[in-house]
């Protein structure tokens, strides 16, 4: 399969490809591969990396030996006394929250992105509309945190400087502390994530939609199909490959996402996610062993999606 994509007429020295690859390989092994190996090694050590993780076991408690940091990473937030207790603690843990992020944020960004792409295709101000939805991509997370402070702010006085609470109180409601009420606050943070990333999904999906041949849609219209049916039965199946790519890309993004949580709540009030927990363990609790173990768990969680992405890509390659 590999041979076909190269013109058979080309002549090349044996070293030529490697010369082209050299700079990329160098920087990547230095900045990505080496730290990764180092991280994996550290995840089996104690908090300063001076001795094996097995030495941190507490007597009389279950111990996983050299995997003690993984024991901590996987179980510290869980209450294993009973099954219901386990579930309720799971949904408050960084793992449960990350799962919420994946489900809500990926469906939110892809759903809204697709909807907007379809609708914007029919109006004259399409370019402007799309640019506006895309705009938050140009904002840093620090900036986004400040922007959303003036949306979510919670005032104890009559005066509300947060937009949402001002709307709520003007209808006679009680102000809501969006960032501190457990469960609600995770949703509030996810909304910020959706605000930032919808433009990304929308742009890609919109281009895929434009590639759907007009004749197919016209033919369906002539046959009397409703717009809704056309969308679900014709457009969606055609752009399905793109949708899967966008979904997997977003899942990877969400898993690595740390900034929004770090900037807006610092993982407090039950909003912690895996990536933020890794940062907390490393730089706030100074436990290198545990921090790296969380990091490795995170990497392992991402690998299936990367694998899926690459396999799809290779399959496409074969069809080329």
């Amino acid at each position: 399969m590999a041979k076909r994509s190269v013109p058979n007429i080309m002549k090349q020295g044996r070293l030529a490809p490697w010369l082209y690859l050299l700079p990329a390989l160098l920087v990547m092994s230095f900045f990505i591969v080496y730290p990764m190996v180092n991280t994996i090694a550290l995840s089996f050590s104690n908090k300063n990396g001076t001795a094996s993780a097995a030495t941190t076991c507490v007597e009389g408690k279950p111990c996983w030996g050299i995997f003690e940091n993984y024991h901590y990473a996987l179980t510290a937030e869980m209450d294993t006394s009973s099954l219901p207790a386990f579930w309720s603690s799971f949904w408050r843990s960084s793992y449960g929250n990350t799962l919420k992020w994946i489900v809500l944020m990926v469906s939110g960004t892809v759903g809204l992105g697709l909807m907007f792409a379809v609708l914007a295709d029919r109006v004259k101000y399409e370019a402007l509309a799309k640019s506006i939805i895309f705009m938050p991509m140009a904002v840093s997370f620090v900036g986004a945190g400040i922007i959303w402070k003036f949306v979510y702010d919670y005032g104890t006085q009559q005066v509300q400087i947060g937009l949402l609470n001002s709307i709520i109180t003007s209808f006679g409601g009680k102000p809501i502390a969006f960032l501190t009420v457990p469960q609600l606050n995770t949703v509030a943070l996810i909304v910020v994530g959706v605000w930032i990333w919808t433009g990304f999904c929308m742009t890609i999906l919109s281009a895929a939609l434009k590639a759907v041949p007009d004749e197919v849609i016209e033919a369906a219209r002539v046959d009397g199909a409703k717009e809704w049916t056309i969308f679900w039965k014709i457009m969606v199946p055609i752009i399905m490959p793109t949708i899967t790519v966008v979904i997997t890309t977003m899942v990877i993004n969400v898993l690595k996402l740390f900034d929004i949580v770090y900037v807006m709540t610092g993982g407090n009030f039950g909003t912690d996610v895996i990536a933020n927990r890794m940062y907390t363990e490393m730089y706030i609790n100074f436990n290198v062993g545990r921090g790296t173990a969380v990091a490795v768990v995170l990497v392992i969680a991402i690998i299936p999606f990367i694998y899926f992405n690459i396999r799809r890509f290779l399959a496409q390659e074969e069809m080329r």
């Binding site: 919670y154 104890t156 502390a177 960032l179 501190t180 009420v181 009030f269």
Partner: peptide
Amino acid sequence: TVGGAQGTLST
């Protein structure tokens, strides 16, 4: 305290 528990936590 101003705002009760939510006030304490969110202020």
